[in-house]
Design a protein around this nucleic acid. Structure first.
Lengths: 114, 114
DNA sequence: TATAGTTGTATAATTAATGATAGTATAATA
DNA sequence: TATTATACTATCATTAATTATACAACTATA
């Protein structure tokens, strides 16, 4: 049994998935691999996610210590930047492997079909 | 936009997660990395999953061409073995990275707390 | 003055994922 | 003869994840 931040997981793999699983988290992390992005910049990279979902996922990633949120102005319009924490950066090989395989799978299918 | 098996994904990372996401799929794949397992053997490795969920996940993995199911007897009690397909084996680096990071995260936390 | 831009939250609804429990068919075993 | 084992499926219930839509607060721009 694996424990992390109060939650229990039956397998080392499910622990990781508990933190980066779901429809959007790996997409967020993928876009943050090599750069800092503002909230609206992330939205432009991910046009099909709703604002609420993006907000919730960012908040969860922040709570888990994977993403850091930096606010630059105290009054609206706010300027908020999101980036990976040092701990979040340890996930880069995982996210990269996930992203690379997605590209591989698409290309493989094309090859077979054409 | 990435397409795979009729489904669309906004990002290469979400394509992969569409196939191996969820609470149990990576756990199944992790146990199948280096061996073939029967249905009940998988259940013993994953005591907290229900039979229905395990069945559904295996069926989905089979439909996606990641896992193969081999039946050895025609009448009950059946003997069914699950293993990775060649395509499924291309996921091993991904699953291994996911599993490794889970171990790393647990150890890191221990180190910091003690 | 009216509008657009920024980073969200609130509320409600819907969809997806997972779980609980019981049941099936047949053979081998006790 | 009753029980155990295998690999599930069926039905129903519950929980988790995601979406839709509207709204807020303030500034800068038109």
């Amino acid at each position: 049994m694996y424990k992390f931040k109060g939650k229990e997981y039956p397998c080392c793999a499910s622990l990781t998935m508990g933190l980066i699983g779901g429809k959007w988290k790996t997409v967020i992390l993928f876009h943050l691999i090599d750069k800092t992005l503002r909230y609206n910049e992330l939205r432009k990279e991910m046009p099909t996610v709703t604002e609420r979902t993006l907000s919730l996922q960012l908040k969860t990633l922040e709570e888990d210590g994977i993403v850091k949120r930096k606010v630059y102005t105290s009054k609206p319009p706010l300027r908020v930047e999101y980036s990976l924490t040092d701990f979040g950066k340890t996930l880069i090989p995982v996210v990269q492997a996930i992203a690379d395989w997605g590209v591989y799978a698409v290309n493989k299918k094309k090859k077979v079909n054409l």
